[in-house]
Simulated assay, not measured.
Amino acid sequence: MQLDSASGWCRGINHCPSPNFNARPAGEISLLVIHNISLPPACFKTGHVQALFQNRLDPGAHPYFEGIAELRVSAHFLIERDGEVSQFVSCLERAWHAGVSSFEGREGCNDFSIGIELEGTDDQPFTDLQYTALIELTRQLRQAWPGITVERICGHSDIAPQRKTDPGPCFDWERFRQAVQQVRGGNE
């Protein structure tokens, strides 16, 4: 995986372009938001997350889908349980991942953030392969956009606490933050 900061796309990963994005307002990319998702809930490697982000989810494929098939959402990246990474939206564009949100008093986090979905649930640990891919991806994103400091990496629950719980209590923030700081040489 290699991020091309000029295009905002990573080479060496799956590209699944989503129509659910628009232009970012002028300004910085300075926030990384970590989510979790699985479709149906707690079912993995189904391809349904990709279908949702590409507006192809069949509402008849599972009863849960009836209530979400019409959603128009996306994220920049998805990291599946086996560490496979897919990209849906260029980092230079505004993916629709955060919804109504606020970080440090600034509303509309989609304007200045990158969203990474981890395939999972609030109540199941994430895999070592996911952490490895997430750490490498985060390293590249932070290199391209230095405004993404360790303090500006958060969960969806941090920016939308009344609505969201992800990435959930099973996400190992300490493990992730220590690895991210080690990659940068601990200079934060």
Rank of each mutant, 00 (worst) to 15 (best):
F88K: 05
F88T: 10
V89Q: 09
V89G: 07
V89F: 05
S90E: 09
S90M: 08
C91H: 05
C91W: 04
C91N: 11
C91E: 04
E93H: 15
E93L: 13
R94G: 03
R94L: 13
R94P: 07
R94F: 06
A95S: 15
A95M: 08
A95L: 06
W96E: 02
H97D: 12
H97N: 12
H97Y: 04
H97F: 14
A98E: 12
V100T: 13
V100W: 04
S101D: 04
S101G: 06
S101Q: 02
S101C: 06
S102C: 14
S102D: 02
S102E: 15
S102P: 01
S102Q: 15
F103L: 06
F103H: 14
F103A: 01
F103K: 00
E104Q: 15
G105T: 14
R106D: 00
E107S: 14
G108P: 02
C109M: 00
C109T: 00
D111E: 10
D111Y: 02
D111V: 01
D111F: 00
F112Q: 01
S113L: 05
S113E: 13
S113H: 10
I114S: 03
I114H: 10
G115Q: 06
G115V: 04
I116N: 07
I116S: 07
I116G: 05
I116P: 12
I116D: 09
E117Y: 14
L118P: 07
L118S: 12
L118I: 10
L118C: 03
E119F: 09
E119M: 07
G120Y: 00
G120F: 04
T121F: 05
T121D: 13
D122F: 10
D122Y: 12
D122C: 10
D122V: 11
D123Q: 13
D123T: 12
Q124D: 09
P125E: 08
F126M: 04
F126V: 03
T127F: 14
T127H: 03
D128C: 07
D128H: 11
D128V: 14
L129F: 10
L129Y: 05
Q130F: 14
Q130V: 09
Q130H: 13
Y131V: 11
Y131I: 12
Y131G: 12
Y131S: 08
Y131Q: 09
T132F: 02
T132I: 11
T132S: 10
A133M: 07
A133Y: 07
A133C: 08
A133E: 11
